[in-house]
Design a protein around this nucleic acid. Sequence first.
DNA 1: TATCTGTTATACTTTATATATAACAACAAA
DNA 2: TTTGTTGTTATATATAAAGTATAACAGATA
Lengths: 126, 126
Amino acid sequence: MILQINVNSEKPIYTQIYESILLGIATGSLAPGDSLPSVRQLGGELGVNLHTVNKAYRLLAQDGFVVINKKKGAFIALEFPRDPQSTAGLREALTVLLAKAHLQGVSQKETLDLIQSIFNDFHRED
Amino acid sequence: MILQINVNSEKPIYTQIYESILLGIATGSLAPGDSLPSVRQLGGELGVNLHTVNKAYRLLAQDGFVVINKKKGAFIALEFPRDPQSTAGLREALTVLLAKAHLQGVSQKETLDLIQSIFNDFHRED
DNA sequence: TATCTGTTATACTTTATATATAACAACAAA
DNA sequence: TTTGTTGTTATATATAAAGTATAACAGATA
């Protein structure tokens, strides 16, 4: 569980931890049921406070990607929730991203190829 | 120039203004050369401080989407910069978005259809 | 018993966000 | 010339977010 954190990033540290674990799950490097380091251990490895790690874990648990056992620690969830609102939220976020890229000259084909390439990195569990 | 702002949103007001104008350009409701309201006027309409509007305009100018004439006001840029790093930044941002949607059960086909639909809303200047 | 877990609580610092108010210089119109 | 407009700069203030530091708690485990 080595995880890269950039203290000078514009992104909050807890967001970086959240996204790293999310990507780990999506790409398969973290599997359902896998245990996560304790908040103190990961905080120590990253050189950040345990509350910063705890916030990331709490958000991951809120979204159903992680299950927290108060005494055993945090684990990757066995099943991920099919949030019915995820498509609406996805559309809103994608629109802003694609609009900016579009204006900066990224073509539709280039974008679709990029999406294809990103999906290829995702682990499929079917 | 009516523009919707949600004061209770998790997004900063200046970001909402930035994104609204960006989307206006991408969808064609704002055309190159169009003038934007003065920072005082838009601030008055939205019920926010002129500095909040000014920050949005400043960021838009930084990214090359808007040109600011210190005495005449702000205008949509006539040409948009082809940022060579936009693809790399796009990939990073897209990866997080798609990973989350993927885990929440949004299929690849559904995602590609969504992208297609978003692109259809963009104005093409060729 | 000693150690580990997430959690809660308190306190503190720094930065981000947003507002309020005033003033400036340059331009345009009365 | 005076008046009003523009973005900009400056100063001050208030609130929230982000992050750290430290301590303590309850339950599990070895």
